[in-house]
Amino acid sequence: MIADVITVTLISIGLFFFIAGTAGFIRFPDVHSRLHALTKADNLGLGFVVLGVVAQADSGWSVLKLLLVWLLALTAAATTAQLIARFALPPGERP
């Protein structure tokens, strides 16, 4: 019962970040601010969803697997965001 309350709360917070990220993706004016909105959803939104599911996990291994999923998604999102952000810069300003 307590686990369920924790799960519902954490996943709701996660969903809030996903909705905010989606709204930002649609409404923000340029590539870089849209990337900011999207990675925020990936990092915090998925993080809270994973933590919510962790409360339901039946073994330590499941917890580790879930955290690995979050870590991999974090790394992939951060990397692709960097690559897209650099590509979106005007050619003269690229580092």
Binding site: L72, T75, A76, T79, Q82, L83, R86
Partner: peptide
């Protein structure tokens, strides 16, 4: 760089 580091970090996993 970002891609070079990612390309060494992810493949083993």
């Amino acid at each position: 760089g970002v891609l070079g580091t990612f390309g060494r970090f992810l493949p083993p996993i």
